[in-house]
């Protein structure tokens, strides 16, 4: 790291509704790195840093993105929501509960990214078809479950929301 990059870059990120000042960051740092290493939000996982696994999925102005592919400094005017910010009351969200109930969690490393992706889906498409569910999470690699339990979890969350639960 050369001296010119290390200096006094300063920017402000809005994460889970809270403004964070990011100081002394190298300007090229990814949003993933800043979330995990500077803001102390380790819920977002890094598994490839290639934008291919979806484990670092976060919401940026409501859109699901791979945090490893977004430069943190370019996210200054955006509302960022991580897995830590999905719940407003500290309790697991409906989607988190259905993941547990359906057995959609094995090693759990891909789970936070999937949870964010599923919230993104259900918030925009309240009654997704099976195909829409599949497409919505096709940016997320899960190596444990084979997706069967995850599909079931999404269906359970969808149905509960539709039933007003």
């Amino acid at each position: 790291m050369s001296g010119e990059n290390a200096g006094n870059e300063f920017f402000r990120l809005t994460v889970n509704g809270i403004d964070h000042d990011v100081r002394d960051a190298w300007v090229g740092e990814s949003l993933l790195y800043v979330l995990r290493e500077r803001l102390g939000l380790p819920g977002t996982k890094g598994a490839c840093e290639q934008g291919e696994c979806g484990s670092c999925t976060v919401l940026m102005d409501g859109e699901a993105v791979c945090a490893c592919l977004v430069m943190a400094a370019s996210a200054v005017d955006s509302e960022i929501v991580t897995v830590e910010g999905l719940s407003t009351d500290g309790e697991p969200t409906d989607v988190q509960n259905t993941f547990v109930a359906a057995g959609g969690v094995q090693c759990g490393f891909c789970t936070p990214g999937l949870i964010v992706a599923v919230h993104h889906l259900l918030d925009r498409t309240p009654n997704p078809t099976d195909l829409e569910i599949r497409e919505a999470i096709s940016g997320n690699i899960c190596r444990c479950t084979g997706y069967g339990r995850i599909f079931e979890a999404v269906r359970l969350a969808r149905d509960a929301r539709l039933a007003g639960g």
Partner: peptide
């Protein structure tokens, strides 16, 4: 069908892996 040990913590992204 006991829920997985630590499943809620895992689903929350709370349960620390080593890098956490």
């Amino acid at each position: 069908r006991t829920p997985k040990y630590e499943a809620h913590a895992l689903a929350l992204g709370d349960r620390g892996y080593i890098d956490d």
